[in-house]
Design a protein around this nucleic acid. Sequence first.
DNA 1: CGCAGGATTGATATCAATCAATAACGGTGG
DNA 2: CCACCGTTATTGATTGATATCAATCCTGCG
Lengths: 262, 262
Amino acid sequence: MRAVPKTDLGKNPMPTASSARQFPCERCPLRGFDIFRNFSAEEVKFLNRFKVGELKVEAGGAVLNEGGPSPHFYTVLTGWGIRYKMLEDGQRQILNICLPGDLVGLQSAVLHDMQHSVSALTDMLFCVFERRRIWELYSKQPSLAFDVTWLAAREEQMLDEHLLSVGQRGAKERISYFLLFVFARARDRGLTRGNSINLPITQQHIADTLGLSLVHTNRILNQLSRRGLIKWENRQFRIADRPNLEDLAGWRPPPDRERPYL
Amino acid sequence: MRAVPKTDLGKNPMPTASSARQFPCERCPLRGFDIFRNFSAEEVKFLNRFKVGELKVEAGGAVLNEGGPSPHFYTVLTGWGIRYKMLEDGQRQILNICLPGDLVGLQSAVLHDMQHSVSALTDMLFCVFERRRIWELYSKQPSLAFDVTWLAAREEQMLDEHLLSVGQRGAKERISYFLLFVFARARDRGLTRGNSINLPITQQHIADTLGLSLVHTNRILNQLSRRGLIKWENRQFRIADRPNLEDLAGWRPPPDRERPYL
DNA sequence: CGCAGGATTGATATCAATCAATAACGGTGG
DNA sequence: CCACCGTTATTGATTGATATCAATCCTGCG
């Protein structure tokens, strides 16, 4: 029954889809990273019409709220976010970290109700789509429809891995695993320099992701530091001894090939 | 480093898609349950060609194995199964229970590699599809493509809930929640009688699903029995005091409307 | 300067894992 | 028919990991 810091509770009750469009799809900020697949001219043309705007959310703001339906769903263009669920007593389970290229709010588009929330860790920019038009995508652009399924399947795969971690691994293993996981995802998106990264998450976030208490998380992190496996101060995180960290985590490099996005 | 019983380790290294077709799609055993949506004649016609056969797996047999790709994916027609991942040291995390209507092996169809295994708790019958033909479905039957996404999103939703449970709830709450969850899913498929059900799972399965030890699971179950919330002997399980069990579990009735299947 | 959010540390409590043994049951082979 | 064995369930004793409680400290910032 521990309190979640205010900065993590959404400031925006329900964001309004803004409006100004900085990025036509041809100049999507996601283009140009190796991991993201290229689109055909036709696909880009479709997406340009399918996209209804951009949404900016400031750090700490709410993007989607558990409970209701949402008229929109989004692709993350820039920034970091979290996807989470709350328990009545205030416990929070973070389900995943949201990074550029991730599709959020698909549940609302397909199943009608959001069963989780999304909020921003840093300032974020989203590409906005309309839920009620998702059928257009399925009927007119099967290749993109396939991509949506791909993204859903990949999210499921991450959750599987995550559940394995929380259910079966000890605290050291869980934490090492999670750090490597986040790092790998960030690296794919060009957010790292060598083995270093600017991590916009707190120990509380790690605790809430892994089902550990803040205090215990802190102790384990210090232990990893003292053992020379990682270094983390302020927001600067570094993998100091990758082989041993990977070994401790039981890390299996993800089979991540090229991936789609919307 | 506790051993998983042999009966749960697949006997069939890799099943061969049989063959004889008991059920043309018009007489699919899934039809007729309220929760499953009806298909148009056109959809049924397509599915009849898309389906390449049926697969029978006996209790304890393997359906899909972690690691490789699989040439097929399946819809569960009858029986109970589990979807799980193993750790090197033999720990097993059960990710979900598979019941009629569930689509399994989608990951292999979409992402090329299975990152989890599926095995049968009871004798099972599957409807078999071919991975390499999945594009046909997307290009020719957008409504079914949408259904596939629906199923993936729903699976993700269950995993979210599950992760919340394992990460944040205590053992009593987890177990009560899981029992209610399984019961609700089974009821939708006509597998219950009132508050009773023939449960083909062992305490070990519950333990492996919820990240608890077998011994502890046993104690909690007995505690729930002694408090008069449940009754479970042999395979017969009964919810004896639903209000209090739901209360303990923090149960929120699932928003389950009509759902698709393939 | 003073404050809030975040990190850290020590002491203690508790939940759940582990170790160890036994029991009930069904199947199997001699 | 009985002895044996594996699976599942059960119980007691003990250990261990992690949570909780309570301070303190640090740092960036208004």
